[in-house]
Each structure stands twice: as C-alpha cells, then as structure tokens.
Design a protein around this nucleic acid. Sequence first.
DNA 1: ACCCAGGGTCATA
DNA 2: TATGACCATGGG
Length: 219
Amino acid sequence: MPAGATYNRIYARLLKRYGAQDWWPADDPFEVAVGAVLTQGTAWLNAARAVEALKQSKALNPRSIAAMPESSLAATIRPAGFHNVKAGRLKGLTGWWLASGGRRGIQGMTSECLRDGLLGIRGIGGETADAIMLYAFERRVFVVDAYARRVFSRIGLIDGDEKYESLRLSLERTFNGAAAACNEYHALIVEHGKTHCRPQPRCNDCCLADVCVGSRVRC
DNA sequence: ACCCAGGGTCATA
DNA sequence: TATGACCATGGG
C-alpha cells in the first residue's frame, strides 16, 4: 500500500473521530498571524486570552500595534507567556505586514516570497510561518508540529527527528490532499494530540491503533 | 509539586 | 550538527 493511502486513511479516521475542527478561530488574516505568534510554546487558551485582550484594547490591527509602545504591548499580551519576546515578534510581524501592503499585498505574493518574508521576521520559524501561510492565506502547506511528529512516528510512518523543512516537503509530497485538507489535517492532529501520543505517558484507546506499522509503536 | 503547552533563538561542545 | 538554557503564564 502506497504511503499516501495511509495518510489518507489516518485523515479519514481522525475526521470521523473528532469531526471538522473549523480552524483557524479568528476573524481575519491578521488575527490569525498574531495568534500564531502568541500560541508559540503555550496552550491555545492562554494565547486566546491575549488575543482577546488586544481586541478589548482595540489594538488587534497593524496600525495600533505599530503605534503601541512595546512595553504596553507586552503588558497586554501577558497571559500568553513569553510576553516580552512575543511583543518584539509582533512588532516585527506588524512592520513586515505594513511594508508588504497589508492583507491584499500579501495575498498577491507567491508562496515562496511569502514564506521568505515570514521567515525573515525574528521569532517566526518554519512552523509559525507555515501556520500563517495555511490558515491566513490558504496556501497548500503541511504544518509540521510536535504532535505530527509524535503521531506519525509512533505509528511508524516517520522517524520523528527529521529536519523541519525536509519533513514538511516529504509530507506535502506524500499526502495528496488540497489546501483545505491540509488545514483540517493539522487541526485534527492537534486535537488528537491533546489526549493521545503524549510525550511521557501512553493510552490504550487510540483510534489509530490498527493503523500502526509493525508492533514497535503505541500511542 | 510536576509536567506541559497550536516555538524559536542563542550559546556552547 | 546537536543538545540545553531561556523566554513566562496558566491548566491538569
């Protein structure tokens, strides 16, 4: 059986188990991008609180963030954790956003140009860049995160410690879904990962158990 | 009290 | 190239 079929099978299984996730929970592309930075290394609940705080301050737009002192920006996003570094990252993101012509200007960019632009921002690495590309600008990208590494590696499909870009390209080649499917797939993996394939413990009721290649793996 | 989260950077070996 | 420390808040 071709590897692509296995990824399709896992996708179908997760979709049936968890239902459509309807990501990204945001009103517009800029909010997606801000949320992507705020959720780095933190639970989404905390990032969402910081997003809400920005909204209440009427500051969830490029102009306001650009005009806001970095210290007060940091104070506003405090619940997201790492607020001092993230304030700087949001400043960098906002500067690039405005310089790129905003939502319209960015949407008109090629995916290569878009990724390069995002990766040029301090504090935006491969995963955050890809999340923005996929969820804010609907580019066909397979977002690789720790959950994807764990789920796929414990099933036996990948090694798990591949370099980011290499794994991303490999998954984009193997999984034959379109952008909308990549969107749903990543969200489903995250949802699954919250309760399965944990870093330390394991579980016995994984809906992917019978998909495992060989016997070395478990959830 | 301990582990972890929808990461990335930088210093060190 | 490849770990480890660091950033920091909050939930389970």
